[in-house]
Amino acid sequence: MKLALDAVLVATLLVLALFSLAARQARASAIGFMGFGLVLALVWVRLGAVDVALTEAAVGALTGLLLLGATSLATPAAQPSRPLRLALAGLCALVAGGLAFLVLEAPDPAPSLAAAAVEPLAALDLGNPVTAVLLAYRALDTLLETVVVVLALIGIWSLAPDADWRGAPMVPGADAPSPPLRLLARLLPPVGLVVAVHILWIGADAPGGKFQAATLIAAMGLLVLMAGLAPAPKLGNTRLRALVVGGPALFLALGLLGFLVPGSFLAWPEGLAKPVIVLIEVALTTSLAVLLALIVLGPGARRPRA
């Protein structure tokens, strides 16, 4: 029974992957890719990686939106030359083949750091080993990840002409929002925010955490903006920019404090690991939510709306 379920999932995944590669229109490709992400999230659940599944579902929906937006802007490119396409196909086949070989040839039992990751959980006062990896053992990776998101936003903002880049971004559909969308934008955000805080809070002990929560908050914010219930913020706003860099800056500052107390960068003081991690998670969630929403909204536009 479970084998049949897995077989259906894998077959659907492969069909969706082929569809988004073979689709003639870029828009169809993007939609196929969003479906692929959703099925992939189910596969992660089947593999027991619920944290990854939640991230895939949340961030996948957001990147799908970005891809859809990009397809409406992009002009159809000329077909690349045949040798180039063959070389690309060869490269992709090599990577996929290499990964398949490694997975199939992995020694049994596979080498695992799981025991090492679970063992110090009590000292950190955490129940979810994934959160411990992200914010205690490998905090540097998480710090760099959030900085990368800030850099992405700076890159997007720099696409605006000089005169407009402090203005509010254009919100698609906000000039003439339809009544059903306005209804949804009034009903859903309270529910979405409660779920986001829940996901953030249980991240310490169960699957969940800042990225998933931040994506949900960003989506709720975008919904309100697209329904025209609130004007898009001006990108030059100092408070908005402080929100954007606040989380990463706090993370960095606490990391530097680690030099003083336990004696190394990004090391948390003995006994205070849990409060420090919670503080960072909350600050990063706020920053990431604003960042992700602003990335979707894009650069400042010519007609700043009041």
């Binding site: 339809s178 059903p180 969308l181 209804l183 949804l184 009903l187 859903l188 529910v191």
Partner: peptide, 16 residues
């Protein structure tokens, strides 16, 4: 309930 709400509204939006 959430699927009901978003499904009904998405249906309206696509229909419009």
């Amino acid at each position: 309930l959430i699927a009901l709400l978003s499904g009904a509204i998405a249906g309206q939006l696509i229909a419009r």
